[in-house]
């Protein structure tokens, strides 16, 4: 059990009279990618803040094993530092300047932003900024990556590209990942396991494992089927297709 980098046991969190999370139990295995989806305002970000240690639970236990880094929706980069300097924040443990510079270059290559090392974040597009954030979080020996809707401020196509990019980055530098998102496609395309939360007070309502190897196409049957399951669980889709299929089968009989 101690090998689980992130473990939550009956974690509840209330803000005054408002109960946000109720008895959430969840453990994430090393190298596993877990996505948490749910209706907006259900407490996804609260859950992530508890995982990161920025916030403490009202009751329950949280065990963390390893260095945690969080990636934000936007503006998580320090605007007064260049791209290279921001990435180097993740390499602060390295004493040698040379080694820091070498690894920074490597990360710049990894996110395909060579030539942008001296740019400041405000000079980059939203998608480029998020790639720099990912590089910073992946720098050095971080263990646990907490992603707080990292692509939701981007346009649709950029979002699709960055999902592929994240899958590739994690392939090269495996990490334990918890992704919080309202983008169900994103969850289905990236996660090994999707956790669906209920309305407030949020409880785990449904869990779904997706065994297909990353990178996955958005239109991969397993991904499509996972999206359908999640949407049905959230009460947005109503199994019309399956119902239609049945009636079609009845007709052909």
């Amino acid at each position: 059990m101690s090998s689980k980098p992130l473990q939550l046991e009956k974690v509840s969190r209330s803000f005054g009279p408002v109960e946000v999370l109720r008895e959430i139990s969840l453990s994430i295995a090393r190298g596993e990618f877990v996505a948490v989806v749910g209706p907006s305002g259900c407490g996804k970000t609260t859950l992530l803040n508890l995982m990161s240690g920025f916030d403490q639970p009202s009751s329950g236990l949280i065990a963390r094993d390893g260095q945690v880094r969080m990636v934000y929706q936007q503006d998580g980069l320090f605007p007064w530092l260049t791209v290279a300097e921001n990435i180097a924040l993740g390499l602060r443990h390295l004493k040698k300047q040379q080694e820091q510079a070498r690894q920074t270059d490597e990360l710049l290559r990894l996110i395909r932003l060579e030539g942008f090392e001296s740019h400041y974040p405000h000079q980059l597009s939203g998608g480029m900024r998020q790639r720099v954030e990912l590089a910073r979080a992946l720098a050095g020996q971080s263990d646990i990556l907490l992603l707080d809707e990292p692509f939701s401020a981007l346009d649709y196509l950029t979002r699709l590209r960055l999902r592929q990019e994240l899958a590739r980055l994690l392939d090269e530098r495996p990490r334990t990942v918890a992704l919080v998102t309202h983008d169900i496609e994103e969850a289905a395309q990236l996660a090994d396991r999707v956790i669906v939360l209920s309305e407030r007070p949020a409880q785990i309502r449904y869990e779904l494992s997706i065994a297909v190897k990353r990178p996955r196409d958005l239109t991969h049957p397993e991904v499509v089927s996972a999206i359908h399951c999640i949407l049905t669980e959230l009460g947005i889709e109503h199994d019309h297709e399956r119902a239609a299929g049945k009636s079609l089968a009845a007709l052909t009989e």
């Binding site: 990161s52 880094r69 969080m70 503006d75 998580g76 924040l89 602060r92």
Partner: peptide, 22 residues
């Protein structure tokens, strides 16, 4: 923005360093 201080905490920037670097 609070985000900056959280990032600082994630990357081990504390105390006097937090004042001068964040």
């Amino acid at each position: 923005p609070t985000v900056y201080f959280r990032v600082a905490q994630n990357y081990g920037i504390n105390g006097l360093e937090r004042l001068t670097q964040v």
